[in-house]
């Protein structure tokens, strides 16, 4: 069931349109990622949902009722900012209890909830510490506990892991996702990191240039991109130009059956991981132009006739630059985009 619904939400700053008729919904207990490059309006959208910014137009529904006129402090959505924004004059205990205190909850009720939160984010023993004495990951957990303490209906996370170093980021991501599953709290996670979105979301909303490009599960978003922009944002892709004539796609490397499509010019998309390179057995068709070793994988640039292809291989066989190789493509998941 859809809990939070965005209908035609738009926003502009000075002449610039930042959000252009955004539509999507979030189901109860679901974790939806808002994925898009920096500056595409992700933070702006979260602020609109939280009530910090009014949209120019559109509707925002919670359980079918508009919440646009409910002020920030009573909206029941809580946002955790990228840089945590812990109150520097309050210790961990009082930071976590801030929302409860503002709501006028009794001392005992506060203490019970704060202890519960400390347990949840595994920060017992840190009650007396001030934000300046905490590490990045600890600050993050305090910010999370502070947000969860007021039992929000919707949790909004704005690039929560981008200020952490690589290893901490992974463990915090698992921690937060685990917490989300455990509490079944409706969550929107904003990120510009495709891997983060793919790994942690139930569904992804892909936002490019202020427009929703695609909505779907991580598998759908990665395997069935709707257009080239969406495909490119999720990683480097190869495109081969060709034509469909009477249900057959003809391209420089051969031909393919493609019965549902109308005749015309198309781009065939092949992911780097769908290209396989093999040792030359005398009939080599391609030449390695560039090779970059990344440990658990190797990136190759391969020249095939006129075309330059990106290719991703496991480091089981290593080819050197200039070597002639046999090239085969896995054509099962081929996607054609009309020109």
């Amino acid at each position: 069931m859809n809990e939070l619904q965005l209908i035609n939400i738009s926003k502009h700053f000075d002449q610039k349109i930042v959000l252009n008729e955004i539509n999507f919904s979030v189901r109860k207990g679901e974790l939806v990622s808002l994925l898009g490059p920096s500056g595409c309006g992700k933070t702006t959208l979260l602020k609109i949902i939280a009530g910090l910014l009014p949209p120019d137009g559109g509707q925002l529904l919670f359980d079918g009722n508009s919440i646009l006129n409910i002020p920030v402090e009573r909206r029941g959505t809580v946002m955790v900012f990228q840089d945590y924004l812990l109150f520097p004059h309050l210790n961990v205990w009082n930071n976590i209890g801030f929302g409860l205190r503002m709501a006028g909850k009794g001392r005992e009720e506060q203490a019970k909830k704060i202890n519960e939160m400390l347990e949840l984010v595994e920060l017992h023993g840190f009650e007396k510490k001030y934000p300046r004495e905490l590490s990045g990951g600890q600050k993050q957990r305090v910010a999370l506990a502070r947000a969860l303490a007021i039992e929000p209906k919707v949790l909004l996370l704005d690039e929560p892991f981008s200020n952490l170093d690589a290893r901490l980021r992974e463990s915090m991501r698992d921690f937060v996702c685990g917490l989300q599953k455990k509490l079944k709290i409706t969550t929107i996670l904003v990120t510009h990191d495709k891997e983060e979105a793919l790994l942690s979301s139930d569904r992804i909303v892909l936002l490019l240039d202020g427009k929703v490009q695609q909505i779907g599960t991580p598998e759908e978003i990665y395997l069935m991109p709707k257009n080239r922009e969406a495909a490119n944002f999720l990683g480097k892709k190869n495109y081969l130009k060709g034509r469909i004539e009477k249900g057959i796609f003809y391209y420089s490397g051969g031909e393919l059956k493609s019965e549902e499509r109308a005749d015309g010019t198309y781009w065939m998309m092949i992911r780097p991981e769908e290209i396989k390179l093999k040792k030359d057995k005398g009939n080599a068709s391609a030449i390695i132009v560039d090779m970059r070793f990344a440990g658990d994988r190797i990136y190759y640039k391969v020249k095939l006739g006129e075309e330059m292809l990106e290719c991703l291989m496991l480091p089981d066989t290593i080819f050197s630059i200039g070597e002639a190789v046999n090239l085969s493509m896995d054509l099962q998941n081929i996607i054609l985009f009309p020109e």
Binding site: L52, V72, R74, V78, L85, M102
Partner: peptide, 8 residues
């Protein structure tokens, strides 16, 4: 803004 979001 952070304070408002937390219900103040």
């Amino acid at each position: 803004q952070q304070a408002r979001i937390l219900g103040a």
